[in-house]
Design a protein around this nucleic acid. Structure first.
Lengths: 245, 245
DNA sequence: ACGCCGCACTCAAGTAGATCAGTCTTTCGT
DNA sequence: ACGAAAGACTGATCTACTTGAGTGCGGCGT
């Protein structure tokens, strides 16, 4: 997709041609950053909203003793928090998982944008609410899903979110996370992630090879994960609903 | 505190007398609800913002097989998501932990309120950002803190958040959660919570009796928990900073 | 085309926390 | 004031996941 930000926002509220134009105007120049580099550091003062255009990034917190937790994954079209510039200090870092292309919307530009278009304002608000819902679902996963369920759930979520910006089909999507990244996202060790992946493969549910995920049986995977896409709150142009046999 | 909503919002942005008056006007009549009852159910269509005036509530998700996770705790002054009415379906329930007194701000009233006072608008925005940060911190706890660290962290957070609305001193605060509630919040069983509590008591860090928590050594507890209050993003009228010896 | 380094993967202990099946204590309704 | 129920607490056993110390493959830079 050429404009993943408009693509994603239009999943929450239909956008007019003018909306898309204003959005494109507000976006600063595209910047590139290497895999594993930081887009913003913990402690920095955020003054703009960064939007991922290509590649994957993550929000991560690091404890004093080195333990690291990935608290969310940012895909093309995701923004690193609208209005984040209202806070004066980042409480987490945003790092590139793959090489990333991103652009910023300066605080003032975002405010004039939402003042001009109530539509866009609503879209940003709903996006923020959906992001919060995703964060809650991660809390649920860590709190009460087992290793295999967590992994299955993450795969279902990634496929669905990527599909929303045209980067996944019903059964396949990119998945450029290393087993270490998965471990840091799911609160487990990479050793255990490795075994759990093999279990999912042995059950014939997925293939994961050269950074690409294939889901052989989406409904069995969703069932295993207790995955219910309602929390993603996409309302416009959903994935076609599954056909009952 | 008589007006916990204004009290809490003024931790993010100083409020004028007019702001406080408008806020009070927008608030609907106070309603009471029994402990353990639901304020909103999963699946309901939210049409107003509920604000807790007295008592504790929680957001909770339930999986199909009965597993339950408390994803956040709502204290006096906390709102159940400004702008939540933009979504059409609750993805989680909000239930009372203790008897709760709450009031609603209808969607339209909130919108005219934020249109009238940019100050209040900012305060709500910052509150939403702080709420998101708290959710991320819970993700971190579940992802990489041990049982005893999680419990210590929760205690530090609750004391700090209650202090922000005048309901806690430096060393003591109400804590009306059962060991079952703690278990559901921290992704563990009540059996294990019980043992962990005893460990905290044995180390002389806390007393927890008849729904009241006393922290005997706040800085040792914070250290154990890796608790850094920065993520709460209170900026106005912080707890006085600790005095270096 | 070669060497290197990150990543996937393996094995053998060790452990935090779960499970189950209780007893004891406090709270609360009538 | 009494009984019932909710909550706190215990002990024995079990297991999902961690730890640490590896091997081998494959993709990347020079």
């Amino acid at each position: 997709m050429h404009d993943p930000l408009a693509g994603k926002l239009s999943r929450y509220v239909p956008l007019s041609v003018a909306d898309r134009m204003w959005l494109a105007e507000a976006l600063g120049p595209a910047r590139s950053i290497a895999a594993r580099a930081d887009i913003i550091d913990e402690g920095d003062d955020p003054h703009a909203v960064n939007v991922i255009l290509e590649g994957w990034a993550c929000r991560a917190r690091q404890l004093a003793d080195g333990r690291r937790q990935i608290v969310s994954l940012l895909l093309p079209g995701d923004s690193c928090n609208p209005h984040i510039f209202l806070l004066d200090r980042m409480d987490h870092a945003i790092s590139a998982v793959t090489p990333v292309v991103y652009a910023s919307i300066p605080g003032a530009a975002l405010e004039s944008l939402t003042a001009r278009s109530p539509n866009l304002d609503r879209a940003f608000q709903r996006e923020a609410l959906a992001t919060a819902a995703i964060q809650r679902e991660w809390t649920v996963s860590l709190g009460c899903r087992s290793g295999i369920e967590r992994l299955a759930h993450l795969f279902c979520e990634m496929r669905a979110r990527l599909a929303a910006v045209g980067l996944a089909t019903r059964t396949t999507c990119p998945l450029p996370l290393t087993q270490h990244d998965l471990a840091h996202s799911l609160g487990q060790t990479s050793v255990h992630i490795n075994r759990t992946l093999q279990e999912l493969r042995a059950q014939g549910l997925i293939t994961l090879r050269s950074r690409r995920l294939t889901i052989h049986d989406p409904s069995r995977l969703a069932e295993l994960a207790h995955f219910d896409p309602a929390y993603l709150h996409f309302t416009v142009g959903m994935d076609p609903p599954p056909i009952e046999p």
